[in-house]
Design a protein around this nucleic acid. Structure first.
Lengths: 342, 342
DNA sequence: TTGAAAGCGTTACCAG
DNA sequence: CTGGTAACGCTTTCAA
């Protein structure tokens, strides 16, 4: 015998039990409940009332089996130590609910997504997959493609078959460089994130190119791993430099690293922004705190998530759509961590 | 016609197609694949090989329909602004994967869980539900009970029908009070979190009772809402007090608030811990940062999540188990935000 | 406007 | 040790 062990008397309603109660066929119940206009207004109402009265809840899994749509979206998250991903997750949950979708949380962390995770994608018949940060392994990409599960990368430009939505990181880097130059800075350092993530590379490139255009000395480049600790370590490095060799402005490609840098300076008695300017990227809430007030380029989080779901749902409806990459412009937010005019 | 629109030629394997290929019955394939000892070692191996070769992935949804187990656990998260919940989530994803479970992310945020969320619990046939922070609404509790979906609250002691796993907050409050008293503090303030969460109440109670036992003046009590901003505002309040009325030690019932307090003091030029001690609770990673070094009681996060899943899986196997509340002792971590001996 | 029946992929029971 | 069959709850086609 299949099915869950008999419940305590409060047997769960199904289309069949409802049908019996209403004296109609199960198919009629199914249609009535989704407002099919072919069913008479009267029966539709009668059945709707009955469903509410008996507390009927459709079984989404059974529906998937017969319709092929699960309403499930796989979510793969980057390292949560960076609050940006936490904010992104919260927004994704909100917007998914608005669209009647549910999120299956598949991975959280820096590591690459394991094969078992890719398996879960298929086992649970997700309609699509939202991947943020964690690089899509070629293996996982192949699996998704083979079973035509559309994939949208958020905050990453894909190297493999997938659509993507990201902040215009190159442009953001340029905007930040322009701002810093206007502020009179001349000796720059850049703290990279993950040195082979497109996000980090583009921000750095946009920033550096602008400097080059203005005949500014090429910036010093340091790796910070997109973590607070990495930023702090980089900051320590600057602290230990002789005063006359130290840059007068630091661009950390992630706010979380900028915070680390600022703390390293604070502890060493180097004043921000009086002695040195520090700016970031992302627009995380923490970076606005009184102790930091980081000038940054904020990513348009809501729009990114929204357009991400758009790309996904479009591809769920139509598997033949070509890959699409959407870039959204970020917004420069001037706070107090850098000298200079707005 | 049911089923997804025909795939591009790479038709997906099922137990039936595998059965045909192997020249056996579908039921045999099913059994062989899960290592049923009644199937001969030889066929088991043959079928396993075939499955791998053809890239077979079981359909977890169909399995649910017939077995009544989905392998899905609903996850309801508190406000992600508090990094504690982010850390908890990461740990939950990790441990769920280890146990072959997947998480359906149902809610993130401070607000109470909406009815639609409770519906989703049922629609997707979750085997159980892990709720952290967000208070279980009585409505949601009734729904879960009626459909016997076991619920485990993490970091909250339930007022309603549910099991729970939490840090021994009362004991932790006492431990912290003992430490502070040993450090020679005498004039205390407590910053509460959410004033009607059991977590906040117990920490406060443990702390205050210990003070009372030692005939210390009752502490000043301020609400901080479990946020950084709340902590900062409370800190501002202390800053504005005349020096001789200001407490010499502040116990914030959440690290995130302690950080706010410390920043408020730092900005006002009040030195921590030289002028005033500030301690927290939770053990979040951020609170260990160089700028803060918060002395705290760390919650045993891994064990909490682990035991939480234990409670859940036990109840999934056996619906008649009584509610159970497990308290785990936290660990005092002495850093530099408070004066005093270890 | 509605009903009947088939089918989605899996598991569980009952035979053999 | 293995096969056949029914059943899980829903949707959809076909027929009326």
């Amino acid at each position: 015998m299949a099915g869950p062990t008999k419940e305590l008397g409060d047997e769960r309603e199904t289309v069949v039990t409802l049908a019996r109660l209403a004296g109609v066929a199960a198919s009629t119940v199914s249609r009535a409940l989704k407002g099919d206009p072919r069913i008479s207004r009267a029966t539709r109402r009668r059945i709707a009332a009955l469903a509410t009265e008996r507390g009927y809840t459709p079984n989404a899994l059974a529906r998937t089996l017969s319709s092929g749509r699960s309403g499930l979206i796989g979510l793969v998250l980057g390292p949560i130590e960076n609050p940006f991903y936490a904010e992104l997750m919260q927004e994704a949950v909100l917007q998914a609910a608005d669209r009647g979708l549910r999120l299956l949380l598949l991975h959280v962390g820096a590591g690459a997504m394991e094969d078992s995770t890719a398996q879960a994608l298929l086992q649970y018949q997700v309609d699509g997959c939202l991947i943020t940060s964690a690089e899509l392994s070629s293996h996982a990409a192949r699996i998704c493609a083979a079973h035509n599960v559309p994939v949208v990368m958020v905050n990453r430009v894909p190297r493999l078959h997938a659509s993507a939505i990201a902040c215009d990181n190159f442009q953001g880097g340029q905007d930040m460089a322009d701002f810093m130059l206007r502020g009179g800075h001349r000796r720059f350092a850049i703290i990279r994130g993950n040195p082979d993530s497109s996000t980090s590379i583009e921000r750095e490139r946009g920033f550096a190119e602008r400097l080059a255009e203005q005949d500014i000395d090429p910036p010093l480049r340091v790796n910070g791993g997109s973590t607070y600790d990495g930023g702090f370590a980089a900051g320590r490095m600057f602290v230990e430099m002789p005063d006359d060799r130290r840059p007068d402005a630091v661009f950390a490609v992630a706010d979380i690293m900028a915070m680390g840098v600022i703390d390293a300076f604070r502890i060493a008695g180097i004043r921000v922004p009086d002695d040195i300017s520090v700016v970031g990227f992302d627009g995380i809430a923490q970076a606005a705190r009184p102790g930091y007030r980081v000038t940054t380029v904020a990513q348009p989080l809501k729009s990114m998530v929204g357009r991400g779901f758009d790309l996904l749902t479009a591809r769920i409806g139509n598997a033949t759509l070509p890959d699409e990459v959407v870039l959204l412009r970020g917004e420069l937010i001037v706070r107090q961590s850098a000298r200079g005019a707005a």
